[in-house]
């Protein structure tokens, strides 16, 4: 018979038992309605096929991200169709995150501008929660600053530095 170390067998057995007992039941889902809505939206998208709205290429949004903001240097963190995100950090500390999103298939995001009283140029400004300030360009492109440390006024001032008029030409 092969000499398999007993510790090996014990480890294998306990590993098998532990794997088998994994996956205990948790609480009921909290976001079941959101999942149902997402399923419906996906069905609608599939039904539209080629006619479904197309988001802009991420690369076309990259140009609107300044190399520096508030002394923080840019690191691109995400580039997906219709969404680009970059983090700005100074001396190892995060200053802010800038995102630009094409919300052509995300109409819910526009709701918050209905009550907007502020503007940058012609474009409405909104906030959501305590850390975000955003602006909607051409009813389609949303530029947003997220920061733990900056105030709404400071975040808005940063958005004023973005070439929103050029975004409107996309």
């Amino acid at each position: 018979m092969p000499k398999i170390p007993s510790s090996m067998l014990a480890a294998l057995l306990s590993a098998t038992l532990l794997l088998a007992s994994a996956g205990c039941k948790k609480d009921e889902p909290q976001f079941a309605d959101a999942a149902a809505a997402a399923e419906k939206k996906l069905e609608e998208k599939k039904a539209l096929g080629e006619n479904a709205p197309k988001e802009i290429e991420g690369k076309k949004l990259n140009a609107f991200f300044p190399e520096e903001l508030e002394g923080g240097k840019r690191t691109f963190t995400t580039e997906k169709p219709g969404y680009v995100e970059a983090k700005y950090a100074k001396d190892g500390k995060d200053v802010c995150v800038l995102t630009i999103a094409d919300i052509v298939d995300n109409a819910d995001s526009k709701d918050k501008y209905a009550k907007s009283t502020e503007k940058i140029g012609e474009f409405p400004v909104a906030t959501f929660g305590k850390k975000q300030t955003m602006v909607l360009v051409k009813d389609r492109y949303q530029a947003k600053i997220i920061s733990d440390t900056l105030t709404h006024e400071q975040r808005k001032a940063i958005l004023e530095k973005i070439d929103l008029k050029k975004i409107a030409t996309l």
Binding site: Q30, F31, A34, A35, A37, A38, E39, K41, L42, N106, D108, S109, F128
Partner: peptide, 12 residues
Amino acid sequence: GAIAGRAIELYM
């Protein structure tokens, strides 16, 4: 809730 809704949509 808004983040969850969008995250579920994006993942699905």
